[in-house]
Design a protein around this nucleic acid. Structure first.
Length: 272
DNA sequence: CGCATATCCTGACTGC
DNA sequence: TGCAGTCAGGATATGC
C-alpha cells in the first residue's frame, strides 16, 4: 500500500531513470486507468520530454517540456516498474522512453489512476489536487493544532485525511501515533498542545526514517521500488501488524482495534 | 458541516 | 485438497 515514503522512493527512482528522456510511445490498455477525461488525451504526451517529477502526498506529478502535468496515484495495489519484455499480468499502461526503455504500470485492483492535470497557476500544482493539505513531511505544529481544533473525530482519522495532511495512510498513522505515545482513538480536538507537538515531530521523523529505508514492503509484496526491490522499513515497524505481541517500549500486549473501517494497532499502556 | 459508512477491486488468507 | 467467505485499505460518494 504505497503511502508517502513508498511514493517518494518511486519518485526518486523514476527521476534518476526517466527525467530528461523523451516519451516515444504510450499505450494505455486498462479500462479504468484514465477516468477523469478521455483516455486518448494521454497519447498527446508522445514526443515530449519529461522535465521533472514532483510529488504531493501520495500523488506523483510528471512535468513535461510543454508545461503539462501528468498526475498519477497508485492507490492500493499500483506499481510502476522499469521493465523489459512481456508485460506482467494486470499491466494497464506501458510508457516507452527513447533512452531508458519501458515503464510499466501494473495494478491488480485497478484503483490506481492517471490524468492530465489542469494547471492552477504558477508551479506544478494542479486544480484537481487543490483539496489536499500540506505534504506531511512539511507539517508544522501550529498548522496541526488549528486543523485539530474542535474536532471530535479520532486523531487517527484526521491523520489519514488527505485534506488535513497529504501522504499518511493506515500503516504510517499507527507508527506515528505509537512514536508520539498518543492513542489513535483520542478525539483530535482534545489533544494538548504538547501532544500535538509530539505528533507533528513524529510525522516528520517516522516518514523521514521510512523514506531513508525506501518504504515498507509487506508480505503481499504490493509495493516494491521501480526496479522491483523491496523496501526495508517494515523491519522497523513497532505497532502495525503486531497485535498480541509485546510492546517494544513497555512489554504490554499490543492491541488491535477498529477505527472507522480500518484496523488500528497500538499499545494501550504507553499510548495515552 | 462533521462524522460514519459503503463502494470500487483482486489476491491472500482462514476455516470448514 | 477445495472452496466459500473474509479481509486488506486509498479516495470518494452518500447518508444521517
Amino acid at each position: 500500500m504505497p503511502e508517502l515514503p513508498e511514493v517518494e522512493t518511486v519518485r526518486r527512482d523514476l527521476s534518476r531513470r526517466y527525467v530528461g528522456d523523451r516519451l516515444e510511445h504510450l499505450e494505455v490498455t486498462g479500462k479504468r486507468t484514465v477516468r477523469r477525461h478521455a483516455p486518448g488525451r494521454l497519447a498527446t504526451l508522445e514526443g515530449h520530454v519529461l522535465r521533472n517529477i514532483g510529488r504531493h502526498g501520495k500523488y506523483l506529478l510528471f512535468e513535461w517540456d510543454d508545461g503539462r502535468v501528468l498526475v498519477a496515484h497508485l492507490r492500493m495495489s499500483g506499481q510502476l516498474l522499469a521493465a523489459t519484455g512481456e508485460p506482467a499480468a494486470h499491466t494497464h499502461a506501458v510508457f516507452s522512453f527513447v533512452k531508458a526503455g519501458e515503464l510499466h504500470f501494473v495494478d491488480p485492483r485497478t484503483f490506481g489512476e492517471f490524468f492530465l492535470g489542469d494547471r492552477a497557476g504558477e508551479g506544478p500544482e494542479v486544480a484537481q489536487l487543490a483539496h489536499l493539505g500540506p505534504d506531511a513531511l512539511e507539517v508544522k505544529t501550529s498548522y496541526l493544532a488549528k486543523a485539530f481544533a474542535g474536532r471530535r473525530a479520532p486523531v487517527k482519522s484526521l491523520l489519514v485525511d488527505q485534506r488535513v495532511l497529504a501522504g499518511i495512510g493506515n500503516i504510517y498513522a499507527d507508527e506515528i501515533l505509537y512514536e508520539a505515545k498518543v492513542r489513535p482513538d483520542r478525539p483530535a480536538g482534545k489533544l494538548t498542545r504538547e501532544e500535538v507537538g509530539r505528533l507533528a515531530r513524529s510525522v516528520r521523523s517516522v516518514l523521514g526514517a521510512a523514506v531513508k529505508a525506501r518504504g515498507s514492503t509487506l508480505r503481499d509484496k504490493r509495493y516494491t521500488d521501480v526496479s522491483g526491490a523491496a523496501g526495508n522499513y517494515q523491519l522497523q515497524h513497532r505497532a502495525y501488524g503486531r497485535a498480541g505481541q509485546s510492546c517494544l517500549r513497555c512489554g504490554a500486549p499490543v492491541e488491535r482495534a477498529r477505527i472507522g473501517a480500518k484496523s488500528a494497532y497500538f499499545c494501550p499502556n504507553c499510548q495515552r
